[in-house]
Design a protein around this nucleic acid. Structure first.
Lengths: 110, 110
DNA sequence: CGGACAGATTGATATCCGTCCAACCATCAA
DNA sequence: TTGATGGTTGGACGGATATCAATCTGTCCG
């Protein structure tokens, strides 16, 4: 069990991506990932008021939809947006969503 | 009961729009509406193999999310995409989705 | 080794969603 | 008014989802 499963770029499906981005919690996660341009830890340090396991679930949904890429890094996970893959498959979609979700509330971690 | 309810442009919410566009059936409806550039009848003549009431339900979800505008026209309904409103609120989003949903299978009506 | 830590997994629960069916309502034409 | 047509509404039902709580797995440190 090295890297958790995620779909290949060509297998990313629009409805799944849309569904993954249809939840406020996941939208906020994605917005944070975008503002951090890449990395983030999943789980407790996400600054979202949800249970650990709930967060883990949301991260899984995002990953399995092809929105994020997770790298296991010791006992942490590095989660990154699959901007290039998404852009290759659905040009402009992620950018539009990120623009729509608005300025990330920021100041969370930094 | 003249025109069915739909949200004002400023009240269109991203999660609801995303959710409305996260279903294959609704995506196909939207794709058809886009290819027809505007109009369509809801219900039976949509060319989608779903029950009347199911179609009606999907049309309602789209309308209440702010994706479509419905005009009652006798016993029919004219459904149109709210392209301008969507573009004003979430620039590029609908375009990206329409591009992503791919070439509409067409030959539906014409 | 043993404890602390980060997160995943599983189970339970309540809710929501998509679909169908049947009944209903409004409009148009005789 | 009667009947047919296009859609909507409400109920039912199976399946998915979001959430939490508790437990498990794997990693880092001493």
């Amino acid at each position: 069990m090295r890297e958790p499963w995620e779909p290949a770029t060509a297998d990313i499906e629009l409805p799944q991506v849309m569904h993954a981005l249809a939840d406020p919690a996941r939208l906020e996660i994605v917005a944070r990932l975008a503002s951090l341009d890449g990395e983030s830890c999943s789980g407790t340090c996400a600054g979202i008021d949800l249970h650990k396991s709930t967060l883990s679930h949301h991260y899984r949904v995002l990953r399995e939809a092809g929105v994020t890429h997770t790298t296991i890094e010791g006992r942490s996970r590095r989660v990154r947006l699959r901007r290039d893959d998404l852009a290759a498959r659905f040009p402009g979609l992620l950018d539009a969503v990120l623009a729509a979700v608005g300025p990330v509330l920021a100041d969370a971690g930094s």
